[in-house]
Nucleic acid binder design. Sequence first.
DNA 1: GGGGGGTAAATGTACGGACATTTGCCGTCC
DNA 2: GGACGGCAAATGTCCGTACATTTACCCCCC
Lengths: 266, 266
Amino acid sequence: MARRKAERVKAVPVGGRKRYEQVAEALLESIRTGKLPVGATMPGELELVTQFGVSRHTVREALRRLEGLGLIGRHQGIGTVVKAREPQQSYVQSVRSPEELLRYPAESQLVVLHVEPVRASRKLARLIGGAVGSQWVRVSAVRRMRDTHVPICHVDLYVLPEFAGVAELMGRKTQPVYEMIEQKFGHRVNDVRVEIRAGLVPEALAEVLEVPAGSPSLQVVRRYFGEDRKVFEVSVSEHPAERYTYSIQLRRGWQSGAEGAGSWTT
Amino acid sequence: MARRKAERVKAVPVGGRKRYEQVAEALLESIRTGKLPVGATMPGELELVTQFGVSRHTVREALRRLEGLGLIGRHQGIGTVVKAREPQQSYVQSVRSPEELLRYPAESQLVVLHVEPVRASRKLARLIGGAVGSQWVRVSAVRRMRDTHVPICHVDLYVLPEFAGVAELMGRKTQPVYEMIEQKFGHRVNDVRVEIRAGLVPEALAEVLEVPAGSPSLQVVRRYFGEDRKVFEVSVSEHPAERYTYSIQLRRGWQSGAEGAGSWTT
DNA sequence: GGGGGGTAAATGTACGGACATTTGCCGTCC
DNA sequence: GGACGGCAAATGTCCGTACATTTACCCCCC
């Protein structure tokens, strides 16, 4: 280790480019070319200080940028390890609530049809992802336009019996049901899984949806998982095709380097 | 401005809690209670230094955390402004490519049926979001399982004439088309809009999809916008319902504080 | 009244130092 | 051999300083 002090410019960066940018780019290049492969431990901060002839503060700023790009992870006592070879460009869809994912017009209204306890048959258990024989409460409802009363969709909502109280709130408030459960029972959502498929309107729903049985429909199943990783709410909705289109926009951006925000496997 | 120096503990934080955390929490509280309303300019760093009796470095660390939470924005020469009252919890779906959004099995294969130039009729222009009369090249293709040859979906791909060269690549490579265009022509994707709706398989596609005409299908339209904000690729695909389900997972996380990653209106 | 320049204020960059905390590792002791 | 302690190394926290850069704003001058 030659330990050359490196001639230090006074304070102004040389080419107008900032010092920490230069350091970051140099490290980025080492990662990109594989000189620092994924999984490798990077040189320590002090080492980088002597290597680039900058202060530790500058080195840390450079590392902070790389961390923000999700390229490296840093742990006290361990060091800095390379996490990815390239900034993971990703398309990010960001929605503030799962309801926004399948947005309904604000002028729509949910009308509860009936509420009843159900025991999960094999088929139902498969649908909601719970155990066969488990107890649930089913709330059947229709979403209509507030003025014209045109039905938008039919919903079968399954919630755990302890949360059955939300049924009476559904008609009164426009709030998403999962949010009611969060507020009323303190049971927080951890993640949501959504399935969308095409189907045909079943005969039993044709009348209430005011379409002929067998016409095309968009079927959406949403499963809400709590912090205990267990399902506590499942909604199954049926949207007549001509009245509903699901639309999203994805923007190219940078993947957040935050620990929890990483990718998951479907 | 009393400029009291504040009795400073030697180096160890008082209650075990870190100094910058204390500062951050104090500021957070001011924001939460409305003492620093959204839109307000926060006290300058130097002011916070005297106010909390910590170094500017510590103040900046605290502000960095708040910025990471998306609560404040900082601009040189302007100051630090409050952007939000609470950390915006959001559900984030992150995918590395728009193809992942509608994932196809890796063992599937795209077979090009025919390629032809088309002039946008009013109907087509509405579909792809371009001008009536504009010139496009349509590539019709079928995605099949590689081994069983079962058709998964039919795709009508519309690209600008200058990108027509991708057609011959489609059969050979498994890469997404937008990625081919990026690599071959250097035209980069800025954002993608996806529409999903239910429909019935049209007669013209029934044979190639090996399903009866009129059976339910999932229709997906994807519009790719370049950095010039103009459409350059549109894919219209038809998925027989029983062979395809669209599935996503949303995880509750923190909204990135990054400038560009903000929300958009649909 | 409008343009231009100067100034103040704000954050950004960069240097220096010191000590704290966490972790892995090794060596010792029972 | 295993438990424990100490050491070294790494990042984390915190202090100090100085100057750069950007921006808003006032004031002067034409």
